[in-house]
Each structure stands twice: as structure tokens, then as C-alpha cells.
Design a protein around this nucleic acid. Structure first.
Length: 424
RNA sequence: GGAGAGAUGGCAGAGUGAUCGAAUGCACCGGUCUUGAAAACCGGCGUACGGCAACGUACCGGGGGUUUGAAUCCCUCUCUCUCCGCCA
């Protein structure tokens, strides 16, 4: 969430940012937060004054009792009682106002970075650049779900039997390809200086709140009722939460972590061609990169991350494009997001395989992830993350784009991991 | 699943009703000394909110209660550890 300081000190900028994101009644919302905060401050100031008196009197009572002056003590006791009543009333006012502020803040999305283009929907996203080879497929080329069947790589029906739709069973070279990609991505990340971590794949409620999945997106996560735990939709959740309620030293930044995890998403309400084959799953594998950085350096980090993800798709030899998401298409928490899409030649469509974002201090504010600067000041970090990469659509594109008469060609970088240069 | 113990500052660890935001040690930062370092000595060293500031208020796992006054007493929840059982 945004900080109250940001809202009170840069009110106009915040309102303009929210309007850019098409937040309804942005001005009213912001003013409501400010007035609730003013109410809180007023109540707190009064409460503090009363408590100052109470504390002084209580101390005096103790001294009176010791010196045997019980009359004075008893007289003071009753007035303290009155003051306490007043204080607790103000306290209640303060807490209520504070909760109001928090609840309002939770409904206000992040403000887009100035370089985010104005726009409402995915149509308005800007193609930053395209790259990779042009793929020419023969007329008899088929989509990946047919290839998966032909070479017995993925059994969707078996997954349905065991669990349900969206839980495929990978078999043989198909399973090996999962392992190959995960290892390739992890090795690349390590080489780029990311510290490998293996987090839990199940998180508690606090972690869900920390990264913003809760309270409003709980319908998108699988929930273990008995233990009140959530299956992670992305490794971002456990990895970023490692830094919840932590004060880092500036010298530690930027922190660079990478993690493989299985990801679980309920994806309620999806249908049609979007969910065909590997296009949208309830469980999939992904390697995630996460950074914690200073505000001064976070945009440099963002561009390093983009360049890094780009290097991955290039090495895999896939046609790709990078999109700068428009204001309306950026997620609730992001200040700026770049999407990576690879071209699936048989489906003749672009498939999103990565999303790289800078959340600035928005996520850190909820996480209470701070750092101590050189001057001894404590302030919020910036958090960033990106997929590097999500497997299913990469597999879809790899299978489709590399199909030949003799089988599916394995990209050179994966050959050592696959133990073969062709899947047949 | 059964039984027990515990949760205090970055860490260790005192503190069982007022003099406690909290002893002491370690770590860390600044200084003196030294050619430099170490040692020794001196000083500093939590977070949040309010206030121009002085300073004030809150916080000893979370929530509630008793009391003029709670880290300390009571209730409750959560978590951690140990032993037994089960087990990849």
C-alpha cells in the first residue's frame, strides 16, 4: 500500500497517478484518507496529553503511599480514574481512525511510474522491442497439445483423472524437459548473481497479506482449511516474505534471490482457447527472481532484470517481444511492469511467459521491509520481481516452433540437460 | 496424537507490581591512546506515531482483564522447544 506520508506530502501527484490508472473517484478517496489521518492525529495528540498527566499522577500516588499520605493518594486515584476514561475514549477514536486509514489505503492501488504509457487495456500496451528468429512452419504443423500426445510427453487426461483439469502429467522426455528447463534457469540465475533459495510452497496468512494476495485475492489461491495455509501462486510470495519486518543494511542491497517453485493457481473463471493444453494451468513450474533494493537504484535493477530475462528467451531461440504495460493493464501493486511474450507459431499467438515489475515501496510498506541508510535513517526498500521463467508456455512454444519431420529439435543450451538434441 | 517447558532489545540473558524502554555481557558505531592494529578507557547504540523543537505517547509473542500503577498478576489465542508415539 501507499504510505500515508506519500499521500499527504505529494497529494496532487498521487491523485494524478491514480487517475492515470483509471481509479474511480481518486480525488475523493485520497481526501478521505487524509481527513481520516487528521482525525487520528488529533485524537492521538489529545490522548497523549492526558496520558502524560496520568503517568505523572500515578508516579505521585506511589510516592504518597510510601510516605504514608493516603489521603492525597486516594484523592489522586479518583481523578486518575476519570482521566483514564477520557483517554480510553480517545484511544478508541484513534484506533478507529487508524483502521479506517488502513482499510482505505488497502483499496488504493500503486501509482504508475511516469514512464508508464496511458492506456486502459492490453490493446494499449507498447511493444518495446521484438527479437528472436522468425519461425517458418510447414503447413501440416500442429499445436503443442497434439505434439505432446504424439511423442507421449504430457498426458492431460491422466491429470484430470488424478486431480482435475489443469494438472497435467509430464512423462518421459516431457518430464525430463521440465527438469532441464528448471535447471537451466537456475544455473543461469546463479551465474547472474542471484542467490538460490528453496522456500516453502505453502505459506501462512501473514505472508499472504505481506505480498498482497490477501485480503482481496484469496479466491485465486488454494487454501488448506485445516491448517489455514495457502498453496503459493508464485515463489514471489515466500521469497519476498523472507524480508517481512526486516531492517536491512544499505550495504546488503540490492539483494538478489532466485527460486524454483511449483505454482498453484485456482484460475477461477477461465475458459476457451486460453486454457487449452499448457496455456493456463492450475499447477506449473516457475523460476522467479526477486530483488530488494534502494529507491535510488531500483530502476537500474529493473532494467538489469529485463535484460536478464531477455537473455533467457534469446538463448532458447524463441521469437519474443517485450511489452511495456499501459497504466490500466499494470497490476494493482505494480508501479511499472514489462511483459515478455513468446510467439507460438502453431497457435499463431503470443504467449505471456514473464512479467517483470518494480513495486517501488508499495509492497515494502505492507511487508515493513526497510533499510538503514548511510546517514542512519531508516526507510522503505523497493521490491522487484520477475519470472525467469514460467515453464508451460515456454514448453508450448518450444514444442511448436521446433517441430520437424524427424521430431522436436532441442535448443542447444538444453541439450546437456536433456541428454539429446531431438525428441522423437 | 500424548506429556512438559518456554516466548524480554541484533544475539545471549536479568528482571515477579511503581525508582523499567528495561540490568549485565557480546556484537555494532564514534572518540581517546597507538606509526598502524589489538587491548584498555570514554561515549553512543530498538521501532512506530505525535510535535518546528524541547519533548511526549505506545510497544517485553498477539488479544483481553485486574489495578491509581503491569514485562511482572489473571484469562485467552498463537508460535517455538524438549521427551514419548508415528513416519519420508
Amino acid at each position: 500500500m501507499l504510505t500515508i506520508t506519500q499521500i499527504t506530502e505529494e497529494t496532487d501527484k498521487v491523485i494524478a497517478g491514480l487517475e492515470k490508472k483509471f481509479v474511480a473517484n481518486a480525488k475523493e478517496k485520497v481526501n478521505e484518507v487524509i481527513s481520516a489521518n487528521n482525525a487520528r492525529r488529533a485524537a492521538q495528540t489529545k490522548r497523549d496529553e492526558i496520558l502524560t498527566q496520568v503517568n505523572a499522577m500515578s508516579k505521585q500516588i506511589g510516592l504518597s503511599m510510601k510516605s504514608g499520605d493516603t489521603d492525597a493518594a486516594n484523592a489522586a486515584k479518583s481523578s486518575v480514574k476519570e482521566l483514564k476514561k477520557e483517554a480510553s475514549k480517545l484511544e478508541q477514536e484513534m484506533v478507529e481512525a487508524q483502521e479506517k486509514v488502513r482499510n482505505l489505503l488497502l483499496t488504493i492501488p500503486n501509482v504508475p511510474h511516469e514512464s508508464v504509457p496511458l492506456g486502459k487495456t492490453a490493446e494499449d500496451n507498447i511493444v518495446e522491442r521484438t527479437g528472436g528468429p522468425e519461425v517458418q512452419l510447414p503447413n501440416n504443423a500442429v499445436p503443442h497439445w497434439d505434439l505432446a500426445k504424439k511423442y507421449d510427453l504430457i498426458d492431460f487426461e491422466l491429470g484430470v483423472k488424478i486431480t482435475g483439469a489443469g494438472f497435467p502429467v509430464y512423462k518421459g522426455k516431457g518430464a525430463r524437459l521440465q527438469r532441464a528447463l528448471i535447471n537451466f534457469f537456475m544455473d543461469q540465475a546463479a551465474e547472474a548473481g542471484y542467490l538460490e533459495v528453496e522456500p516453502p510452497f505453502v505459506v501462512n496468512e501473514d505472508s499472504g497479506y505481506g505480498t498482497g494476495q490477501l485480503p482481496d485475492k484469496e479466491g485465486q489461491m488454494y487454501h488448506c482449511n485445516l491448517d489455514n495455509l495457502y498453496l503459493i501462486p508464485t515463489a514471489e510470495v515466500p521469497v519476498t516474505n523472507m524480508y517481512r519486518e526486516v531492517i536491512l543494511d544499505e550495504s546488503q542491497l540490492p539483494i538478489k534471490n532466485c527460486a524454483y517453485s511449483a505454482c498453484f493457481r485456482r484460475e477461477a473463471g477461465s475458459y476457451g482457447k486460453d486454457v487449452r493444453g499448457l496455456n493456463r494451468l492450475h499447477q506449473f513450474n516457475k523460476v522467479e527472481i526477486v530483488r530488494i533494493d534502494t529507491p535510488e537504484h531500483s530502476y537500474e535493477s529493473l532494467h538489469e532484470m529485463i535484460a536478464y530475462v531477455e537473455s533467457l528467451v534469446q538463448k532458447l531461440g524463441l521469437p519474443y517481444r517485450i511489452l511495456r504495460l499501459c497504466s490500466g493493464d499494470c497490476s494493482f501493486t505494480s508501479a511499472i511492469t514489462f511483459d515478455f511474450e513468446v510467439y507460438s507459431a502453431a497457435q499463431k499467438r503470443w504467449l505471456e511467459v514473464s512479467s517483470v515489475s518494480n513495486f517501488e515501496a508499495y509492497q515494502a510498506n505492507r511487508l515493513k521491509c526497510r533499510y538503514k541508510g548511510k546517514k542512519g535513517t531508516t526507510q522503505l526498500c523497493h521490491t522487484l520481481n520477475g519470472s525467469a521463467l514460467a515453464l508451460p508456455r515456454i514448453v508450448a512454444a518450444l514444442l511448436e516452433n521446433n517441430q520437424t519431420e524427424d521430431g522436436i529439435r532441442v535448443p542447444e543450451v538444453l541439450v546437456p540437460y536433456m541428454g539429446t538434441d531431438i525428441i522423437k
